[in-house]
Design a protein around this nucleic acid. Structure first.
Length: 313
DNA sequence: ATAGAGACCTGTGTGC
DNA sequence: TGCACACAGGTCTCTA
């Protein structure tokens, strides 16, 4: 999926088109995504205003005016397309990087023409939200691993999708002490532990590889050896937290990454992929200036891991 | 309780 | 050009 930085980028792109606007119509183009959509999905959305658009781990949560939350997960290949009069104003501001602006200016002529020109349904467009300002937000997902559901605000904390989620790495929930405590005694590999959403929520295959490279820790290391013997945070736990926070912050700042089937909510392509140190760089030299090693690929629990055996221990 | 394999889907790139 | 196969950002479910 889009991992946490991509979901955060999508959130920022969607917010101006959704927040403060009323949903006037919903096109549900199939009964299910990964799971069946809720009973009366369309009826339970139409007429509600979007009060806020938040993110928890890789989930987007739209707060609706009736107290429900529209929960959206992008799976592996989900994306949103925005056609909105609000978009031109957003693009003109400072919130969207120059590359995104360039991608959009060409598509926009007059507000009416913009909306009309982009109104066609494309393959794998599954849900279209129509707003009271004439804007549209379309969810597209070829692989259909993504999903949407409705959860009442006061049930979010205890809902099966959210109750077991671990530390949110973009907040002060993630500390070396807490991470050390969570990894203490774990017999699994560090790669697998960081992909476990119950420990740190929001990391995926790419950013785990990148965070471990930054922390100079091997993906094959036993997770329980990150804390000190008494379970407290030492040098390794501190480096790991710094690696996680650093790579996520850099990726969010760059506007998220874009691989082959991922496009930002605002339609622009990402560019953080150029900054990956190890992911997808098998056989290239390790980018750490003083390191003589090279990037190697291995498979752990069925997924590619990229790392430098020379400097990651 | 927990770790690993398999499953869910479609698209794309590679090699023969 | 066509075809088979590997692989892709996630995570739920089943099995050991």
């Amino acid at each position: 999926m889009p991992e946490l930085p991509e979901v955060e980028t999508v959130r920022r792109g969607l917010a101006p088109a959704m927040v403060g606007r009323r949903i006037v119509a919903v096109e549900q183009r199939r009964p299910d995504l990964r799971f069946p959509l809720p009973e009366d999905f369309v009826a339970r959305l139409e007429g509600r205003r979007v009060e806020a658009l938040d993110r928890r781990a890789k989930y987007l949560l739209a707060a609706l005016s009736d107290g429900m939350r529209l929960v959206m997960h992008l799976g592996m290949s989900g994306s949103f397309r925005i056609e909105s009069p609000a978009l031109a104003a957003t693009v003109a501001g400072d919130a969207v990087p120059a590359a995104a602006e360039a991608a959009l200016v060409g598509a926009e002529t007059t507000p009416g023409a913009f909306v009309h020109a982009r109104s066609k349904i494309a393959a794998h467009d599954h849900v279209v939200l129509h707003f009271d300002d004439g804007g549209r937000v379309t969810y597209n997902d070829p692989r259909r691993f993504g999903y949407m559901t409705l959860v009442s605000a006061n049930e979010i904390a205890t809902h099966p999708l959210f109750r077991d989620l671990g530390m949110e790495p973009t907040t002060d929930e993630l500390t070396p002490e807490r991470l050390a405590a969570a990894l203490f005694g774990k017999a699994t590999t560090l790669k697998a532990a960081l992909l476990d959403q119950r420990i740190v929520a929001g990391l995926g295959n790419i950013y785990v590889c990148e965070a471990l490279w930054r922390a100079r820790l091997s993906p094959k290391r036993i997770a329980g050896t990150v804390p000190r013997r008494d379970g407290s945070a030492g040098e390794r736990a501190r480096r790991l937290v710094a690696g996680i926070e650093g790579v996520l912050a850099d990726a969010i700042a760059a506007g998220g990454s874009s691989l082959r089937d991922y496009v930002h909510a605002d339609g622009s392509l990402g560019y953080f992929q150029h900054a990956f140190a190890v992911y997808g760089r098998e056989d290239e030299p390790c980018p750490r200036p003083t390191c003589p090693g090279g990037v190697r690929r291995l498979v752990q629990t069925g997924r590619s891991t990229f790392h430098c055996p020379a400097c990651q221990r």
